[in-house]
Design a protein around this nucleic acid. Structure first.
Lengths: 240, 240
DNA sequence: CGCTGGATTGACTCGGATCAAGTCGAGTGG
DNA sequence: CCACTCGACTTGATCCGAGTCAATCCAGCG
């Protein structure tokens, strides 16, 4: 299960055998987390860095008026911000949206790893840059894409990310996201999201049903979304 | 002019005299940039890290359909991502929106500084976390705030950031942002933005006129925006 | 077998986009 | 000094995408 995290980092910047071993060592102590548990809440003082080994989680904020905005999805291999411990308090919460397996790495241990293993540090910096790129893509979606484009774009992203970490190989992805959650990610109401899904289904591009995303026509979906995968930064600078 | 950058970092994590000197040294070689010049474009291979010493800039993306989304504003003291050099290409562009003074720090020089001066590294990591928090706040705004709230929220943010770096002291802020630019930041049309500004003016909370933001009633503005400054992380963990 | 939470659909309303005309102000050149 | 121009700001009229409210539908499950 740790494999996914190590593989993901290795994909960003090649790791030595020693570094792989160090990572495996640091992430050996995992724990299970129940669905809908907050890993950390807005206002909390950040503790150790954690890494999702299995299951999905999301970052989110609750507004004064009670509405919720989902800010990002965390899939196996993703981790929360490296230097989170420098902050006095969290500006958002993180919640498990499936039963999940999580490992926590103490701040000092994390610092030691980053210091000692430059390859790991480099890979994790890239991972962070990708997360930032993803946030920018979300801002762009919310600001300048129609609701149909927005949904298509998110599905392209989630599909590619899942594929990049080897979660899937075929055209289908197990999506443990309720329409309510998706609506809260995309800045729309559940009712409207449902209608958008119907449009996409009718277009023949994709279907979401019974917790599974089926991409029927990848080319069409990408075209609808105006999707460009550059922000996921898979092709990396060679001579870095 | 370099002072602003150093002061900002110092506010995030106290710097030693030696560190201050190292920063001053690294940022001594500045250049002027004309309005509306791109500092770097989407698709470019990232070069050195750069820091805005004077003037304003913005990150933005242009979509296939020609529309633009502004992703962030950079004010004096702000810098682009530290580890940007690890990526193969930029996923967005950065443009000067006023005549600006910019300093570029070569990647190796930057790495050396981060290695040698932990205080600088820490302060810059915090700065990056703040930028991420800001992006999350933007996502939240776009997704779950009305247009009036959104405008008010952005103005609170810009005002506080300007104040935090000592750009202003009174209730007024010189805002070099056209309505078109603001509209492209907030995911609305210039026409609608204009009407929203009128509403805010009528409410007595704030006025934007002739390139100046005047906050007439701070309490009311914050209330309209539902603004919480926690994401700017000014109160930092003491024992960090 | 009925309960419950998510998904789906319909009817109506409204915020914000679009289209179209101005207006204002700063520069520029006659 | 004034007319001309150009870009940015304003305002009005109309339309449409998305929100709201409300009623089912449906599947999993205690």
């Amino acid at each position: 299960m740790r494999k996914r995290f190590i593989d993901k980092l290795n994909g960003f910047s090649p790791l030595s055998a020693e570094e792989t071993a160090a990572l495996a060592d640091a992430t050996s102590n995992s724990r299970k987390v129940a669905v809908r548990t907050d890993l950390i809440r807005e206002g909390d003082r950040p503790g150790p860095v954690f890494v999702i080994l299995d299951g999905w989680a999301c970052r989110y904020k609750i507004l004064p008026n009670g509405t919720r905005q989902v800010l990002a999805y965390l899939m196996p291999g993703d981790c929360c911000d490296l230097h989170i411990g420098l902050l006095a308090e969290m500006d958002h919460s993180i919640m498990a949206i499936t039963p999940a397996v999580v490992v926590t790495v103490e701040r000092l241990a994390m610092d030691a790893i980053l210091d000692r293993h430059r390859g790991i540090a480099k890979a994790m910096y890239v991972a962070q840059l990708v997360d930032e790129g993803t946030m920018r893509a979300w801002i762009t979606s919310m600001g300048r894409r129609t609701s149909v484009e927005r949904v298509a774009h998110l599905m392209c992203e989630l599909y590619l990310r899942a594929r990049n970490i080897g979660l899937i190989s075929g055209p289908d992805l197990a999506l443990p996201l309720s329409q309510l959650l998706l609506a809260d990610s995309l800045g729309m109401t559940p009712v409207h999201l449902n209608r958008v899904l119907k449009v996409l289904r009718a277009s023949g591009a994709m279907v979401i049903a019974r917790g599974t995303l089926q991409i029927k026509d990848p080319y069409k979906l990408i075209q609808i979304a105006g999707f460009d995968d550059n922000y996921l930064h898979r092709r990396l600078r060679q001579a870095a």
